[in-house]
Each structure stands twice: as structure tokens, then as C-alpha cells.
Design a protein around this nucleic acid. Sequence first.
DNA 1: GTTAGATTCTAACCAAAGTTAGATCAGCCG
DNA 2: CGGCTGATCTAACTTTGGTTAGAATCTAAC
Lengths: 204, 204
Amino acid sequence: MTGASTEVSKGDLTRRRILDAAAAEIARHGPAGASLNAIAAAADLRTGSLYFHFASKQRLVEAVLEEGIRASLQRLDAMAVPTGTPAQRLRAGVHAHLRALAELSDYAVVVLAPPFSVDAELDGFRTLRREYLRRWAGLIADAQADGTLAAGPEPGEVRDLLLGALNAAGLAGQDPGRTADAVFALLRLPSGPGTPGGGAPRTP
Amino acid sequence: MTGASTEVSKGDLTRRRILDAAAAEIARHGPAGASLNAIAAAADLRTGSLYFHFASKQRLVEAVLEEGIRASLQRLDAMAVPTGTPAQRLRAGVHAHLRALAELSDYAVVVLAPPFSVDAELDGFRTLRREYLRRWAGLIADAQADGTLAAGPEPGEVRDLLLGALNAAGLAGQDPGRTADAVFALLRLPSGPGTPGGGAPRTP
DNA sequence: GTTAGATTCTAACCAAAGTTAGATCAGCCG
DNA sequence: CGGCTGATCTAACTTTGGTTAGAATCTAAC
């Protein structure tokens, strides 16, 4: 082998470059519209070279999807930890999702564009996505039990509505802080002691 | 000419068939992923025959977009007429949007999938879409002035959130009535005398 | 039944996209 | 130094997709 096991090899670097380029291209033109030529050019490579890192275009797309969900889930985990009241955790979740949207823009767009399903989605992606949705349903169920959210509709239903709203705002390039405030105001969430005043919580 | 002017000619029929097929294909695979071969096959035609009805694939896609927005706007007009309280009109608008989503499924998906912008969108489409959004911003502004919705955030911002939520539910295949009820509950909209109990208003 | 126009099919053409095989080059290890 | 492995490039091939030109068919009027 080349280099110590803990080091990032040269290949890992370009692999990342390819993923970034692919995410950008897919976000702009959809999975089908993203050409390997364009991706390779953006990654400063020749088209054929992509095949050293990914077995096929399909695999590359799947890798982008998986990466997007993975990073989103990670952010959700970091912010919506099981501490505080249901309302606080819900607010934290909203902030996490919006931040993921803003920071991973290209990856996030790809992940949450539901209409165009990539056929034969990777198992890893499905699993992570399911996990992400499950996590959210939990947050919502707690908020409903608590009276923070209306108790009528199913948690999964509410989750779809809420994430749909957040995604739309995120894709439109809205400021995460503003969007969060708007959502909380519309839902009439108490701006409790958890997150002050409405601004986004600080995180390094 | 063939046939009286008020009759639907044979060509008009197949034109419609092509549009339907194209909408379905685009909804499933995105504009770039929808191939003329697949569209023609679904419309029971040979690929070349499409060009008698549409000058290019681009034009066909534009026609689908325009058709989708046109039908949506028409439904909104029919239901959210300027009568009743802001809350009632808002509720009517929600129902209209959800019904459009359910009834025009393929066309609607195409219209509201924002991530993948069709380059060089047709002017007619842009105009109609703008009008649709303007209409909604009006509904929301009235509801905010009325106290029905929180007054803080901009109407356009709220509209994006609301439509995003509705679209997500609609794309997921949720029942329009259930979704409407859920939305109203979350927003704590008064279930006033306008639309009874929460069910979707009847319309032939 | 003939004719004109509308509609569809056939059969190509061309460009672009995904894919592959082999050559090339750089860096490390012995 | 000499060879091995990782990484990239080059140059092709194959398929698919959009597009076009002209033949063929159908429909409706005369």
C-alpha cells in the first residue's frame, strides 16, 4: 500500500471531488440530465477516469445519495439529541434540517427530490433514509403527545408536511434562521427557554 | 380544413395522448430522463410521428408545463373566489391545490418540481406560474392581516412553506381531504362555517 | 371515386452519452 | 535502480436519443 492507513490517499481526494461535482450536476439537471462528461470536467478529470473510482454512473449517483443522507442524519443526530422538552427538540430538529439543507446544498437537493426516483436505489440509502424519517416521526409524535402540535393527524403525515415545507424553503435559498422563525410562528410553537428568541442556535 | 371548427379533430386527440404520456414520463424520470421513444410508445405512436405535433422535445416539455399550470390555476380560480372570510378563502385554496395535485397528478408533479429547471422556460409558463404564486401570496397576506395566520413572516415566505408542505403530501399520494385536515389542525385554523367539519368540499 | 390535406410510418442520420481496453505516468518498496 | 501498484489519460466502441426527409395511409370534401 501507499501511505499509512490513517492518511487520506490521493484517490480519496479525487473521489470526493467527483462526488461534489456529481452532486452539483445532479442538483441542477437531475440524475438523468447529469452527464459524466460534465461531471468529469467539473472535477478536472477525463471522462474515462471516473470509472477508476465508480463502477458505473448508477453507482456514482447512488454514492451521492448515500453521502447526502449520511451527512443529514449526522447533523440531525448532533442537534436533536434526546434532551429538553419535545418543543425544544422539535425546534432543534428544524434547525438541523435547515442547516443541512443550506450547508450540503447540492447533496441535500439530490436527497430530497422525491419525484425522480433513482431506480434500484442502493440499500444503504434506503436504510439511512428510513432511519432519518423514523427519527423525525418520533420527534413529532412526542410534540403531539405534549400538546405542542395538534394531536389529530398521524405523525408520519405531519412529518411529510413539515419536511416538505422546510425543503421548499431550503431549495428556494431562504435563510435558515428566517425560515425557522416563520415555521415556528405559523405552528405557534412556544419560543421557550431552549433556543433563544428565534435565532438559529450557535454551533461551531 | 377537415371537420367543423368546433369539433375536436383526430390530431387534437393524439396531441392530448402525447401530452399525457409525456407528463407521465417526465413525472417519473425528469425532463432529461424522459425519452421520446418512451413517450411515443406510451402514446401508441412511432417516435418520428411526435414531430408532426411538436416541433421538438423542448417544445413538448414546455407544452406539458404550460398545461399543468393552466389547469392548476383554473382550479384555484374556481374554488378560491373572493368570497367569505380570509380563513375560508385560505381553506378553499388549500383544497384547490390539493385537488389539482391529485387530479392532474403527472402534470402537477412536473409543474411543481422546482429543482430541475427546464432551461429556457416558455414565457407563457413563466407568466402563469407567476400569477399562481401571486394569487397565493394574496390569500396569505389577507389571512395574516386577519390574524388567521401569524403576521411575522413575509407572505411569499409563508406561501413557499405552505405549498411545499402541500406538494410533499400530494406527491406522496396522501388523500387530499386528510392532508387538508392535518394542515388546518397544525395551523390551528378555525374550522369556521365555510367548509364543514374538515372534509373536502364537494365539486362535480 | 378522386383529390387535397391531415396524419402516421419508415428509415435513415447525427450527436451525445456510457462504457471499455490498453497505454502512460507517478510514486513507493525492495 | 527496477519493478509494482495506484491513478489517470487516450482512443476507441456501442447504444441511445433527438431529428429529419420522404413515402404511405387515412379522412373528408367534392
